[in-house]
Amino acid sequence: MKADWITRSRLWKSVFRHNLDDTPRNRALTITSNIFLHIHPVKTKIKALDVRFTFCLGGLSLLMFIIEAITGILLMFYYRPVPEYAYTDMKLLEHTVHYGMFLRNMHRWAAHAMVILVMFHMLRVFLTGSYKPPREFNWVVGVILLTSTLLLSFTGYLLPWDQIAFWAITVGSKMAAATPFLGNDGPFKQLLHINEYNDMQYLLLGDNRVWGNALLRFYVLHCVLLPVICIVLIAVHFWRIRKDGGISRPL
């Protein structure tokens, strides 16, 4: 092979610790010597390869999360989370940024896809009894991940700062005001001396209506806090799959 000098170079060998001959040893090493692939076991049960068992739903949820992270970071270069600029930046993204609209479309549709995929991943896990011992805890982590996915999507919904965004979040954040004990419109609010300046809705919006503070809060939640929570929980989720005996199969 012409390119032998590359794979024989010290530089190449410093990155890839084994050669590419098709031997059982190399097949194993490909998995164990690669940080990304080593989430897999070296060997997999043939039945677990059947697409009709998992429908790739969990893996594709992760893929959507990665696509969201990549397109999201790119979008952050063009977006300012203040009422004066947010909507203008959406328009600029559409009309002046090269592939700006495509970027935003990717981010939006992958988000919808992620919500659907996560919901159906949960359905798949339920129908295959994969929440049963010893996988109970991973199911709980999964439910938190589902909730985080919905919150990620919900916080992202406000950012375009158009009429759909504004009124959807206005309707949604009224629910926070309806929280029992902790919301200004909820039952038993007098017990904790709750008013419209210290209730759950105020905590969520930084105000008692949707405006600049809410936009900034949702932006930070959407771009920093929730993704970090998701990354940590995804790590736990994947690690626990392996620790709980791999992908579920009949006993």
Binding site: I67, P83, Y87, M90, K91, E94, M101, F102, R104, N105, M106, H107, R108, W109, A110, H112, A113, V115, M119, L150, S153, F154, Y157, P160, W161, D162, Q163, I164, A165, F166, W167, A168, T170, V171, G172, R209, V210, W211
Partner: peptide, 30 residues
């Protein structure tokens, strides 16, 4: 995902206006 993103644009209505209520104001689909 690429084909979907090329074929269909993400929606964007008029700029947020607290004085003009959307009716109906629908939450995100989920």
């Amino acid at each position: 995902l690429c084909i979907w993103s090329l074929a269909q644009n993400a929606p964007l209505k008029a700029i947020a206006d607290p004085n003009w209520t959307e009716n109906p104001a629908k939450a995100p689909w989920y």
